[in-house]
Design a binder for these strands. Structure first.
Ligand SMILES: [Mn+2]
Ligand SMILES: [Mn+2]
Ligand SMILES: [Mn+2]
Ligand SMILES: [Mn+2]
Lengths: 228, 228
DNA sequence: TTAATTTGTTAGTCATAGCTAACTTTTTTA
DNA sequence: TAAAAAAGTTAGCTATGACTAACAAATTAA
C-alpha cells in the first residue's frame, strides 16, 4: 500500500488546476506559486482557486500553509504530467494526421486531454511511433510519466551577436503562432541576434536570409537553444 | 434567417439527452417516448429527465405537451445525428487504427463524442476515407447529417428455416459483444435458424458449420437481414 | 515602523445536474 | 365505472464550480 492511487477520480476542473500549478512551477522554478497568480493564469477569481485548492489539499494533491504558497505532491505532479502527455500527443496527432496547423491544435487538445482511457493514449502514442516532441517543440512524457527537460531560454534573454536555434514556442496564443509562421520562422530555424534596441527592447534578428524586427513580447514567447 | 443554429451551446448532458430520445424514437417508431422510459434508458430519476426536458423544450429541441409524450424538433434531431456521427467515427477509429476490440470502444466513444470541433471530426472522417459503417455494423451519418437506414430486424423475429445475414449488433453491453465474438459470429455471418424452442424461445442456429443455441435475450440484440 | 498595497480567505449567491419524497394526472384493470 | 397502477410533475435537497463583496494577513513603501 505504498501508493494509494485514486485511479482517475478527478474532474476536468481538478485536472486543469493541477496542470496549471505544474506549469507555473516549472515556468519559473525560483518563484513559488501563489493563489492570485493561479487565478490569473486560469482566468477565474481568487475565490474560485482558493476553494479548489482546499479540495485538492484534502485529496492529497496539493500542499500549502494558510496564507502560504502552493506546491504539488508527487501524486499531484503525476496527474499533471499525465495530462500534459495526453495534451501533447493529441496535438501531435492533429498536426501530423488530421491536417491541423500548429495554431489550431491547442484548444481541441484542451478538450481531448480529459478523455479517460489509458489504452487510448498509449495506443495513440504507439500509432504515431512514440513521438518525442509536440508541434510546438515541447517534449512528450512517455507512458511511465518520464520526460527529459530540454534546456531552453527565451529569445529575449540573448544579446547582440548571439546565435541560437528555435527549439519551442509558447502555444497559448493563436495570433502569436500564426505570426511566427508568417514571418517564416519554424522549429530548428537558426537565428542570429543583430541588435537589441535599448529604447523598447525590440530585437533585430536574421534567419534564412530574412531580417526581421520583433518585439520583446514576441521574443518572450520564443524558446531557443544558444549555439554561439 | 431560416435556421437559427445555436452553434454548439449544448452541455454534455443536454447532448446525451437528445441522443437518447433520438435512439428511443428510432428504436421503435410506433411507440412514442415517455418521460419514465427516458429516465430508465439514461439510468437517472424521472425527476431529472422531467427537469432536463423542460430546458430542452425552452431551447427548442424537444416538443411535448404536459403529461404527453416526447418528440424532437428538426434542431433536436440534427444535434442527435451529429452526436451519433461522432460516436461511430470514433468507434471506427479506435477499432481500425488503435487496436481496440469492438467491445472496448463504446465507453471511450461516449466521451469522445462530446469533443467540440467540426474540423476534428470531418478530418477524422477523411483520414479513414469516409467509412460507411461502424465496428458494430451501424451506418455512419455523413458530414451533412445524411444517413441511410439499412433495413434490419432482430434475429429473434425469425422462424425455423429462415436464413439471414448478421448486419449489426447492439453495442451497449461488453459481455454481449465478447460473447458474440467467442462463439464465432461476426458481421456478415450467414445464419440459418434450425429451431425455435417454444418453451423458452431459445434458438438453435447454424453458421460456418457451427451449431449453437442462443437465448431469446441474445437474439434480441443481433440484427439481421433476411436472405431466405 | 507605521501606512498602503497586495495577497489570500471567507461568506453568501448562482447555475447545472443530479437525487428523494410527495403529489397529480392518465391509463389500465377489475 | 370506480379503484389500482403507472406515468408524469413538483418541491426541496445535494454537490460542483463559478461569481462578488467584505474582510484578514502579509508584504512593500514611505
Ligand atoms: Mn497546447
Ligand atoms: Mn484542459
Ligand atoms: Mn457505441
Ligand atoms: Mn455521451
Amino acid at each position: 500500500m505504498t501508493n494509494k492511487l485514486n485511479l482517475n477520480n478527478l474532474t476536468k476542473s481538478e485536472e486543469d488546476y493541477l496542470k496549471a500549478i505544474f506549469q507555473l512551477l516549472i515556468e519559473d522554478a525560483s518563484v513559488k506559486v501563489g493563489n492570485n497568480q493561479l487565478a490569473d493564469y486560469l482566468k477565474v477569481s481568487p475565490a474560485s482557486t482558493n476553494n479548489m485548492i482546499k479540495k485538492l489539499k484534502a485529496k492529497g494533491y496539493v500542499v500549502s500553509e494558510k496564507y502560504g504558497k502552493l506546491d504539488l505532491t508527487e501524486g499531484g505532479k503525476s496527474v499533471a504530467v499525465r495530462l500534459i502527455r495526453k495534451h501533447r500527443l493529441w496535438e501531435t496527432f492533429l498536426c501530423n494526421y488530421l491536417n491541423f496547423t500548429w495554431d489550431e491544435v491547442h484548444d481541441v487538445a484542451e478538450q481531448l486531454e480529459h478523455i479517460k482511457s489509458r489504452k487510448l493514449i498509449d495506443e495513440l502514442d504507439r500509432f504515431m511511433d512514440f513521438p518525442k516532441k509536440d508541434p510546438h517543440g515541447e517534449m512528450i512524457p512517455n507512458a511511465n510519466g518520464e520526460y527529459s527537460i530540454v534546456p531552453k531560454i527565451t529569445l529575449s534573454s540573448l544579446s547582440e551577436g548571439d546565435v541560437c536555434q528555435l527549439v519551442a514556442v509558447n502555444d497559448g496564443s493563436v495570433h502569436f503562432l500564426k505570426y511566427v509562421s508568417e514571418i517564416g520562422l519554424a522549429l530548428s530555424s537558426e537565428i542570429k541576434i543583430l541588435e537589441v534596441r535599448e529604447f523598447d527592447k525590440s530585437i533585430r534578428i536574421k534567419f534564412d536570409n530574412t531580417i526581421e524586427t520583433v518585439t520583446r513580447k514576441f521574443a518572450d514567447n520564443v524558446f531557443v537553444n544558444k549555439v554561439v
